[in-house]
Design a protein around this nucleic acid. Structure first.
Lengths: 329, 329
DNA sequence: GTGAAAGCGCTAACAA
DNA sequence: TTGTTAGCGCTTTCAC
């Protein structure tokens, strides 16, 4: 910038003013500076600018597992929205580790990001909460019940879609429904509550069961295997998450069970395999692009100082052939 | 930091020395400073540090489509490796647009990243090449033939796996093989060359065909539909990429074709659906984690000033039931 | 071994 | 309208 000023024969502050669109600049000044900028191919140093302006135009996105299709889509969508508004995205992947969650929040704070979008793997981890406590930038939390005052949330309404799913199964005659869930996080709690509510509303005894573990393909497989090996296997299985669904399907398939006939199955999150599987798999679907977009929009609103409220996005049940009437034995 | 110095009753430079592990610090100084740091909960400002040290400890990753499973896995792996070495990752998603590719390279440069990992959607775009030209940081390019001197490459050896795939199909009696590809990028060229080479080696006339378009689910579906509607449809289809595979499968399935019997099919990239499809789908597979890891390692080596060479990672064919003997008509 | 001072590249008061 | 000056928070010579 010093060179530009020299070449144009003006002060550095004038160059700065021209480049940042200050109102009080003469046309002559503007053209001289711009000419010098063009000649030198000058590009301002965003780092120095950040230090001085005390804003980095950068949003930190701390995500549990970016290689999970669900998060990948959310991140992609959020990045587009943020970038359009002039922000860049610093991405950290915590590999589902609570320690890394906390470390990443601190790291992002040290890097002076203007805000943080967060999807943690443990809602209660004291270290994470402590790190959040000390934060003085806006925080948007994705589909988690993190007790942090001041944070804004983007929730999925898991209950709605799950109630439709369970109602569908009950209508088909299923009473022994098993639900496989990962960690105790908001989505799992909501899905569970929806299942329980459905039985209760219909005055049915609680003949469902839950299997809780980790949100992984491996656990999905193990849980499904365990369920099928029991004396009275369930007549329907609900997998609470795409990884769990993939694991479960492997096992169901290995055992030669025909979905919708031998056993009914419902997945969560509409990944490519659900539609292409034979038979196609009924799922509770949500709009990942909307989630990422909403999170980014909320962040932008917070940064602009606008009043914002939590957002809840819908989920919906997509009935497919993997659900059928309960098999006669 | 000023406060820390005051509280400890020492100069700021001493605080800096303690925190950056300078060798010449007395034990007394060290303990006093650390005590003050702990008391104030001080965390150094990485932004200011970057400006002064002229290094940001940040790597830019410009990717075409992070919501594509393949890239999501590569990014996840690269992020882990970089983070372990103390680097953060600035992610830009170009949505397969060449203009955005170039803009992102410039943006990352302005943000003074220490290096860029790149997966562009157009290898020849002059604007992208111009942006790369002006770069003065290390560049690692992912599986593209970008004419940029000084850049280091992580290639996939697509030919190896594809030759195995084509050999397999030829052994099964297929002669009329159609290959669907996206943009003319390195992977497409390599796969194409492998197909041609296989025929030539066996002294077979070139009775294969190519359909080129864009790397998308939509084009995969259209291409497959077109092929099947021809007077003499191919007896085997190879989809050059996971998105093309998904699109093709939708159409094949809608037409009620049984893979491995009515028509044979080979996909690329081993996404979940390939194994779970009925029948399971033969694919040319590559190790996405290794790609991300290698790219990050190369970057770290470049930053350390170590001599580095291009890396080529293998691909392999996984035979599955989607390939069968050519159907008698 | 420690402190004082200069400066990374930029912006924002303040003066002119 | 433009230039001069100070300083964002840190590191790093250079003296002592």
């Amino acid at each position: 910038m010093r060179e530009v000023a020299q070449l144009a024969g003006v002060a550095m502050s004038s160059v700065s003013r021209v480049l940042s669109g200050h109102p009080d600049v003469s046309v002559g000044m503007q053209s001289r500076v711009l000419a010098a900028v063009a000649e030198l191919g000058y590009q301002p140093d965003l780092l120095a600018q950040s230090l001085r302006r005390q804003e980095t135009m950068t949003i930190g996105f701390a995500v549990g597992d970016i290689s999970n299709q669900l998060f990948a889509e959310i991140v992609a969508s959020a990045e587009t929205t943020l970038r359009t508004a002039g922000y860049s995205m610093l991405l950290t992947n915590s590999e589902a580790s609570a320690e890394l969650d906390a470390a990443h929040i601190r790291l992002l704070a040290q890097r002076r990001v203007d805000g943080i979008i967060l999807s943690v793997g443990d809602e209660q981890n004291p270290d994470t909460l402590a790190a959040l406590e000390r934060l003085d930038v806006p925080v948007v939390i994705l589909d988690r019940d993190v007790p942090m005052p001041g944070a804004v949330n983007v929730f999925s309404d898991h209950r709605r879609g799950m109630r439709q799913a369970v109602a569908h199964l009950l209508d088909l005659g299923h009473r022994d429904i098993a639900m496989i869930n990962g960690q105790t996080l908001r989505p799992a709690r909501e899905r569970r509550a929806a299942l329980e509510a459905c039985y209760e509303e219909r005055g049915l005894p609680p003949t469902y069961r839950f299997v809780d573990g980790t949100f992984s393909v491996e656990f999905g497989a193990r849980a499904a295997g365990d369920l099928l090996s029991q004396e009275h296997p369930p007549t329907a299985i609900i997998a609470g998450g795409n990884q769990l669904m993939l694991g479960s399907l492997k096992v169901l398939r290995a055992r030669g069970l025909r979905l919708g006939r031998d056993i009914s199955f419902v997945g969560c999150d509409d990944i490519p395999v659900s539609e292409l599987y034979d038979p196609p798999i009924a799922v509770v679907r949500r709009d990942t692009a909307a989630m990422g977009h909403s999170a980014a929009e909320l962040m932008l609103a917070l940064l602009a100082g606008e009043p914002v409220e939590d957002v809840t996005l819908p989920s919906e049940f997509v009935a497919r052939a993997s659900c059928g009437p309960v098999a006669k034995t």
